[in-house]
Nucleic acid binder design. Structure first.
Lengths: 202, 202
DNA sequence: GTCTATAACGGGATAGAC
DNA sequence: GTCTATCCCGTTATAGAC
């Protein structure tokens, strides 16, 4: 945006947008150079290759968009407040970046061999505190005994998957962009109530 | 497999496997021809282009793998039996084709502009009968009043999403293939119980 | 650091013989 | 129908001048 950004940053940002929008394999380095307003040789000067640039971008995207969410999970909040806040913050983040899930899924298919070697990925599931909380409250009896793995998978499935299939949901229910956002907004309380109801003590 | 298969079929099957395994954009027509044991010119003789071949394959994959599931949803089964059977059949299908969700998600990112123009896609949500059932049972009071759109999205999210993030689940929980299948198998009853519990009358 | 020019390759698609 | 040969284009990456 600003003219004062250095070249490396301009390349990085242009590539980020294009990768998310068109996909890595359908974005050429010429596209990137053109969007960044520089020559394509500079791309190779700053990043050694397209794949290298992609690795950097992907790690950055993961880091940037998961820090706040992780902080919530590992906070000292009471469980139901934590779930409510997590669901809401997650959905807000994805609403601001509506293609992020879809892009991430595409990468998970494209690069599944190397995906777990990316350092930033462990950020996605550094949920020890949250896990412990569920186990301990289960022991205390304040919630039903719950498998934290399934519980976590349930939550992120219901939060993120609708973004991945957004075009299908819009088509099926004849929604425009605004109505889709409304549908997603409804899911905040829907998901929260749902997962909390299922761990209520018997 | 059999030597008697005609060429068109051999191309179709080779391409299907490669597309699912490596992704459409990372599969070349030379890869396809080689795997099918024919020359690449034949690919263009039978299908006009790679993109055309892909369209045919994608529609076929959707049709082939959703018919049984749709039949369950639109059957006369009682709601809780229907959900149980649907969840189980869906998970069985995906367990047999473990890359299908991931591939489908990648396509949903790659081809999201044209995805809803594909005829076979409407198969995915021809769920009128199921929808009606939820509304009517809600009115009768045999279940809680439930928004069928959210209910359906919840179900397919919890069923399918774990397959899309399989490498992450395996890494986080230190699972091998067998343990992952076990985790998925557990989800059959887990998901069924969860969604049914949430529509129990108040 | 930034550019132009180009190398080196692989891609999809087609012509034309058989 | 099936093949070989080839076209033509876009791709990533690099060499080398400034």
């Amino acid at each position: 945006m600003s003219k004062n950004k250095n070249t490396e940053q301009k390349i990085f940002e242009a590539a980020t947008e294009l990768f998310i929008e068109k996909g890595v394999d359908r974005t050429s380095v010429r596209d990137i150079a053109s969007k960044a307003g520089i020559n394509l040789a500079l791309m190779n000067y700053y990043f050694r290759s397209k794949e290298n640039l992609f690795d950097a971008i992907f790690s950055d995207l993961v880091n940037k968009n998961t820090q706040d969410l992780l902080q919530i999970l590992n906070s000292d909040l009471e469980l139901s407040d934590k779930v409510k806040k997590y669901v809401s913050a997650y959905i807000d983040m994805l609403t601001k970046n509506p293609l992020l899930v879809s892009f991430f899924m595409a990468i998970l298919h494209r690069s599944r061999e190397k995906i777990t070697e990316i350092d930033a990925i462990s950020n996605l599931y550094a949920t020890e505190k949250f896990t412990q909380q569920i186990i301990e409250e289960g022991k205390k009896g304040s919630i039903r005994k719950t498998d934290p793995s399934h519980f976590f998978v349930d939550m992120i499935s219901m939060i993120t998957f609708p973004f991945a299939i957004k075009p299908l949901i819009m088509d099926k229910n004849a929604l425009d962009e605004k109505a889709f956002d409304q549908f997603i907004e409804e899911r905040k309380s829907h998901i929260t109530q749902m997962v909390l109801r299922c761990i209520e003590p018997c």
